[in-house]
């Protein structure tokens, strides 16, 4: 379960973003793509376990799940879910337009 490693990297990323600011982290927003290989449920569990003792200890985690969208790089037609990953019009191999995100979108800081 690599979600623990992801949380470690997430906490490190949050720490780098907070830097030397005198603030505590209130909320963490992430985007996780359907094709990213990260399971949102496991990420939530890993976060709840791993945030103890870190600067995210009192910060809630909000996950935006990004569905996979494959499209034709030539005509931008969306490839139907479950279909062969090739454009039926252009015969081009499909490209993943979105859905591989493992992104820290923003944090909310509590400032005095």
């Amino acid at each position: 379960m690599h979600e623990y490693s992801i949380v470690q990297s997430l906490v490190d990323s949050v720490a780098a973003a907070v830097g030397s600011r005198e603030a505590s982290v209130h909320e963490v927003h992430v985007a996780i793509g359907e094709m990213s290989g990260v399971d949102c449920g496991l990420l939530t569990t890993a976060y709840d376990v791993f945030r103890a003792g870190t600067l995210c200890e009192h910060a809630s985690l909000t996950i935006e799940r990004i569905p996979a969208r494959w499209h034709c790089p030539r005509c931008d037609a969306t490839i139907a879910r479950g279909a062969f990953l090739r454009c039926i019009e252009c015969n081009e191999p499909a490209q993943l337009a979105s859905g591989d995100e493992i992104v820290l979108q923003r944090i909310e800081l509590e400032v005095a």
Partner: peptide, 24 residues
């Protein structure tokens, strides 16, 4: 904390990042 009216609410400041978590 809010210092305007003494209500006790915290001031929340959003920080936009859009960074890859696995950037390292």
């Amino acid at each position: 904390m809010c210092t305007d009216c003494g209500c006790g609410d915290v001031n929340l400041v959003p920080l936009e990042l859009q960074t890859r978590i696995l950037a390292h």
